[in-house]
Amino acid sequence: MLKSILSARTKGLMALAALLLFAVPTAAQAAKWYVDNTLGEVKPEEKKAPATPRPVQLIFEFQRDGAPNPRATKEVKPWIIEALQKSGAFSEVLETPVAGGAVLSVTFNNIVKKEDVDKAKKDGFRAGLGFGLFGGVVATDRYDVTFEYLPGEGAASIKTLVQHALHMKYGKKDVEIPGTQVKNVTEAVKTVVRQATDRGVNNLVSDPAFPQ
């Protein structure tokens, strides 16, 4: 069942959900995925963009509880680059040094709380006994996304932290999910990455120290 729900591109990201799904039978109902509503989209009236965008070198790392996750880094990086390119904040986004020496460091840290994992395992077992029909589970993956922009050599860096979350509902659980449902886990993770990147970049550009 895990294979049918988590694609090869994202199963390295959903640590909490994966632990849960291992505990339930293949006859159980499919999970539903929700992007947390707290962060949301950057509204048009909020969006900032420099008058003259400059190129930037991207340094990106995906982590789980602060430890590097190379596989997830490789899979998520193209989504980060795409979001940065569409933001309008930079003329180019490269992984090599650029003219002017600007560098953007993005760290996407998937935080897995032990109490959340323990509860998910316990609830997952209970849901499994009823084939998902008489119980259910709600699990949450939380993300701390750190952005640090260095305009050039000798300049002070600009930093911002964005927090986001992804929820999974499995089986029959009568509880309101504080998120917007998406069609699958791949779309869920892509949306979290895009929204967090859009918000982080907008925060940086809104800083008076960001080159305009």
Rank of each mutant, 00 (worst) to 15 (best):
P178I: 05
N184G: 09
Q85K: 10
E82G: 08
K3R: 05
P151D: 03
K43A: 13
P151H: 05
S4P: 15
P25G: 08
G135M: 00
V103E: 09
N184F: 10
G200V: 01
L133I: 09
K86C: 14
G101Q: 08
A165G: 10
Q163A: 11
G130R: 01
R126T: 15
A120P: 01
T107F: 00
A72E: 07
E148Q: 14
A209R: 13
D141K: 06
P97K: 09
S87D: 06
T146P: 01
V182K: 02
E45Q: 12
R71T: 12
P78M: 03
G152M: 07
L104C: 01
F134V: 11
I177K: 04
D65Y: 10
L13V: 02
Q212H: 15
W33Y: 11
N69V: 10
R126M: 15
Q85G: 12
A139I: 03
V76M: 11
A51S: 12
A102N: 05
G136N: 10
V192M: 04
T146A: 08
L20K: 00
E61K: 09
Q85E: 13
A8G: 11
A165K: 12
T10D: 09
A188T: 14
T96Y: 14
Y149M: 03
K113C: 09
D198P: 04
G40E: 12
R126W: 13
T38P: 01
P151L: 03
G152A: 12
A30H: 15
P53W: 00
